[in-house]
Structure formats: structure tokens, C-alpha cells
Design a protein around this nucleic acid. Structure first.
Lengths: 207, 207
DNA sequence: TCGGCAGTTGGCCCTAGGCCCACCGGCCGA
DNA sequence: TCGGCCGGTGGGCCTAGGGCCAACTGCCGA
């Protein structure tokens, strides 16, 4: 009997998975978590064999949960609806044993649970491709994100770890001007702070 | 019915695999090849769905056969007895959809054939590890830098772009505690702020 | 037993960072 | 000509971040 914990912020998804998995002979659902932190806590208290883990969740996202669970005796299958190539390698590196998308055939999901439970690692085709092409084959979302030349320049400096003051000195403008550009960059990238912007730049080859 | 071709230079192995696979309901063995070149030729003439391919074979080895079969409509599972990490990435890059060792549990092999036939990619644990550690077998300067376990954990969260408050929530400690760890991490890494620490972590494979 | 290490937490404080308002001038296409 | 875009700048303000002090507990080896 493989004990499975389901972590997804959508109750419908959790219910659907639970219903389907519990009609399997040798799979039992031991619990459900609605966010990453709860997933970690329940993993510790319930001791599941396999954790089905969404990536986009509140409080603590899937990658954060993976980091917390590093070293734990649980096999994690990432089950995500978002096809972001940039998620695959970090998730696998953080310890995921499977990376599947939510459109996976249910029979294939059951097989994946077995495979992963037996120690193997399993990837959806797109995820495998993302892993194989590696970090070099990055999208260039600056074309999609529409940063101005100046904003791009400021982002490069952020991604080099510089402070606003240092950037202002380098560009020979007021620090206030840099702050304006930084705010615009953060807004356009949809991130909260410069650290996330720097990570974004590195991950998307903007640095 | 999944049509399988078996390529291995040992008759006993071929016979054993054929016997076992043919008692499966939905798997049929369409042929056996004793070397890489024969594997390629039979793949072309018999059109199997899945090829079980040994790596160490005469005439043309497994990697060579993979290169020859590139673009063909066949899913290849490498089944090798040799645990050579250096074989994994080249095989996967050459188009293998699975990488297993000959000590694989027979039930797991059947599942692997199904998974691979459905388009997924599946790796034995050791093979997955070889893929993840990658060619850039980076130094792990955390050993040189001497971060404590907790500091390393906090650094991972920083490198995921989280705020002190978020990290505190995730680790179930006071924000003040996180700030202390962050300060220690910054000092030990010799950086000024969290952005630089995050970049350091990413660059040195600590994330 | 004692000292060092790790983890935790508090008080205090300063400033870098980021948001919200506003304005200016130059350029360019409708 | 006018409006939008871009780059530049200022005022004001709040808080997240980080440094500097301190203290406590538990663990473990000398």
C-alpha cells in the first residue's frame, strides 16, 4: 500500500485526485494539504511514501516545500498545470522524483506513483526536454515583457548585485532615477523586490 | 499491444526478457538483436514501439545505435548492466527515453515500458542522479565556506527570492531569528546583501 | 564540569528600498 | 498640433533589511 499525500491549493483538484487514487488497489491517500507549509507539516506528521505537490501555492510554494523536505524520506512528484520550463531543473535539483503536468493520463499517474515509489525518476516529455536542453536554451522573455533599453540596463546591474546608489553612479544619474527604473522593472517582471528580479534575470538569460 | 524489440549481445538475457515480457497481456516481443547494427536494422524493418537497448554491444554499441535511430519513431529504453555515470547524459541526449539497469525489478520494467511508450521519460535512481549532478560537477563551496545546516537552509530560501518574513513563516521561527541567520550568511559569503547572496547561491549551485 | 557551537530571541537603530504622488523636456507618429 | 512614450528628477513616507549589542538553552567533547 503506497501512502500518498496530495498538496494542491484547489480543493477540486485534491478531491479529484483522492477519489481516483483511492479506487486503486494499492494506493491510499493519507491526507491533503492546501499550501506548501501544510504539505511540509503533514509530510512530517503523516509520513507519506509519495507526495503529489503543486508548484503554485500560497504561504510556501512547491519549490520552497521541496527545499524544506530535502532529506526527508518521501518521494515527491511535482504535478503542475503551469508549463514553465524554468521550474523543471530547480524542482528536480531540489529533490523531486517526478515532474508531471496535470493533464497526465490517470493510468500514467498511477504508474508514475509506482515508479517513483520504487526509486525511479520520471519526467513528462516536456519536462524531460527542459532538463536535456539545459539552462542554455532559455527563452528571452524580455521581448515579451517589453522593458525599455534603460530598464534592461538597470536590470543587468541589479543582476550583478549592485545597489541603487552604485547603479546611479555607474549610469551617471540620480539615485532617484534608478529607483524609478527599478520600480518599473519590478512591476513589468511581476516580482516583489530586486532579489527576485535578479534571479529572474539570471534564469532568463538577461544578466 | 506494445511491440518490443530486444537488443543485447547475451542470448540468455534476450531469452529471459522475451519470456518474461511475452507473458504480459499487452506486450509483444517482435524480435531480438545481438548487436547495435542489428538493432538498427531490425528497428527499421520491424517497426517496434519500444526498443530495449544494451549499451555494451559489438559491431555498434548502444550509443551508436541511438545516434543511428535518432528521429525514428521508436522509444528507446537503455538497459545496461554497467553503472557508468558518464553514459547517462549522452544516452539521454541521443534520444533515449529511459535509462535502467539490468537489476531492475521486472514489474518496474513493465511499468517503464508503459511509461516510455506513453511519452514519458524514466530514469533509474542512479541515472537520475548522474543527470542532475550534470557535467558541471561544480565545487560545493559551502563546504569551504562552512555554513551551518540552518544557514544553508536560509540561503536556499533567499535564493528562491523569499523575504525574511516568508522564511520565518516557512521555518516556523521568529523573523528576528531569520535576520540573524541572514547576517551570518552574508558575513560568511562575504557579500553585502541578500541579492548578492542569492546570486552567489545560484552561481555555486546552492539553490 | 566547562567551554564552544548552534539555534533562538530581544532591543535598538539607521538606511536602503520601494511605493505613491508630481513635474519637465525631447522625440515621433497620427 | 497633440498625445504617448521615454528618460530624468523631486518630495514624502513607510518598512524591510541588516548591523550591533545582548541573553538564553541544549548538546557534546575535552
Amino acid at each position: 500500500m503506497i501512502r500518498v499525500l496530495i498538496a494542491d491549493d484547489h480543493p477540486v483538484v485534491r478531491q479529484g485526485l483522492r477519489t481516483f487514487l483511492e479506487i486503486q488497489e494499492d494506493i491510499g491517500v493519507v491526507g491533503e494539504a492546501a499550501d506548501g507549509a501544510e504539505a511540509v507539516a503533514l509530510t512530517e506528521s503523516l509520513g507519506p511514501d509519495v507526495l503529489l505537490l503543486d508548484l503554485r501555492m500560497p504561504v510556501l510554494d512547491g519549490l520552497g516545500a521541496l527545499a524544506e523536505l530535502s532529506g526527508r524520506d518521501v518521494r515527491v512528484i511535482v504535478l503542475t498545470s503551469v508549463s514553465d520550463r524554468g521550474d523543471v531543473a530547480p524542482a528536480m535539483r531540489a529533490g523531486a522524483a517526478g515532474f508531471l503536468y496535470k493533464d497526465v493520463d490517470p493510468a500514467a499517474l498511477v504508474r508514475a506513483i509506482h515508479a517513483v515509489h520504487s526509486g525511479q525518476v520520471l519526467l513528462a516529455p516536456e519536462a524531460a526536454e527542459a532538463m536535456l536542453s539545459g539552462p542554455a536554451e532559455r527563452e528571452r522573455p524580455e521581448h515579451a515583457v517589453a522593458l525599455t533599453d534603460r530598464e534592461r540596463e538597470v536590470l543587468r546591474h541589479i543582476a550583478a548585485g549592485r545597489s541603487n546608489r552604485e547603479i546611479a553612479r555607474a549610469l551617471v544619474v540620480a539615485e532617484k532615477t534608478v529607483k524609478t527604473h527599478v520600480s518599473n522593472v519590478l512591476m513589468k517582471l511581476g516580482v516583489q523586490d530586486r532579489t527576485q528580479a535578479a534571479l529572474y534575470a539570471v534564469r532568463h538569460g538577461l544578466s
